[in-house]
Amino acid sequence: MKLPIVAYGDPVLRKKAEEIDEDYPQLKELISNMFDTMYGAHGVGLAAPQIGLPIRLFVIDATPFADDEGAEEGLKDFKKVFINPIIVEESGEKWNFSEGCLSIPDISEEVSRYPNVKINYLDENFEEHEVDLTGLAARVVQHEYDHIEGKLFTDKLGPLKKAMIKSKLDNISRGQVRVDYRMKFPAQKKGR
């Protein structure tokens, strides 16, 4: 089932998310719905805060990047569930890449991130993993990890860029944006 994606300006996107355990209600269904929602919005990652849940959970399917010219090895099968993840290490020289976000539609900006990341997490069966990721896989993980830390990619922009997109961000929170997926807008009156 496709769920509505929470738009920029909603307080849930600024909360540091809470850990969950295997008794979290209807977790398997939630994970399935998150993948459906992500695919329906043509995304490659989706964090639980983006559907209004302040929990440490995100899903990724970076296979669309595998078809790009010069794509890195490993993206073809990079479909994962991350529960209670912890970034253990970030390394390398930061590099810029244009990022967007399903909660911030129609805005993409160059964001500087580390090329390498080591992350510890639980999968959907609550089995523990620790993996080293590089390139786009590392970038997508860092972007989604930021969501569960209450951060957005726009936080990484310089003051001038932030000022230039402020009115667009305000419009998004008011629902003055066109998207082909369901969204919940914080500045719209309830019941509309």
Results as ranks from 00 to 15, higher is better:
residue 99 E to K: 13
residue 25 P to R: 06
residue 58 F to H: 09
residue 73 E to M: 07
residue 92 G to E: 12
residue 33 N to Y: 00
residue 60 I to S: 06
residue 60 I to R: 06
residue 149 E to C: 14
residue 122 L to H: 03
residue 114 Y to A: 15
residue 97 F to L: 11
residue 101 C to P: 13
residue 9 G to Y: 05
residue 39 Y to L: 08
residue 155 D to E: 11
residue 12 V to K: 04
residue 82 F to M: 06
residue 158 G to M: 03
residue 98 S to A: 12
residue 126 F to S: 03
residue 184 K to E: 06
residue 165 I to H: 12
residue 41 A to E: 09
residue 135 G to N: 12
residue 60 I to P: 03
residue 108 S to F: 15
residue 132 D to R: 12
residue 70 G to A: 01
residue 144 E to W: 13
residue 5 I to K: 10
residue 133 L to H: 08
residue 114 Y to L: 07
residue 110 E to S: 12
residue 159 P to S: 02
residue 178 R to Q: 04
residue 70 G to K: 02
residue 177 V to Y: 12
residue 13 L to K: 10
residue 160 L to Y: 00
residue 45 G to F: 08
residue 132 D to T: 09
residue 69 E to P: 01
residue 158 G to C: 03
residue 5 I to T: 10
residue 13 L to H: 05
residue 85 P to V: 12
residue 34 M to V: 05
residue 126 F to R: 04
residue 81 V to G: 03
residue 171 N to L: 15
residue 146 D to M: 15
residue 43 G to C: 08
residue 40 G to N: 09
residue 187 A to I: 00
residue 162 K to S: 03
residue 165 I to E: 13
residue 77 D to F: 08
residue 120 N to K: 15
residue 167 S to F: 15
residue 25 P to I: 05
residue 117 V to R: 13
residue 181 Y to V: 08
residue 181 Y to T: 08
residue 153 F to G: 09
residue 84 N to I: 09
residue 165 I to W: 13
residue 29 E to S: 09
residue 95 W to Y: 12
residue 160 L to M: 10
residue 22 E to F: 02
residue 179 V to Y: 07
residue 143 H to E: 10
residue 12 V to F: 02
residue 105 P to T: 13
residue 172 I to C: 14
residue 121 Y to H: 10
residue 9 G to F: 04
residue 117 V to I: 15
residue 116 N to Q: 14
residue 80 K to A: 06
residue 75 L to M: 07
residue 53 L to N: 00
residue 42 H to R: 14
residue 5 I to G: 08
residue 183 M to Y: 05
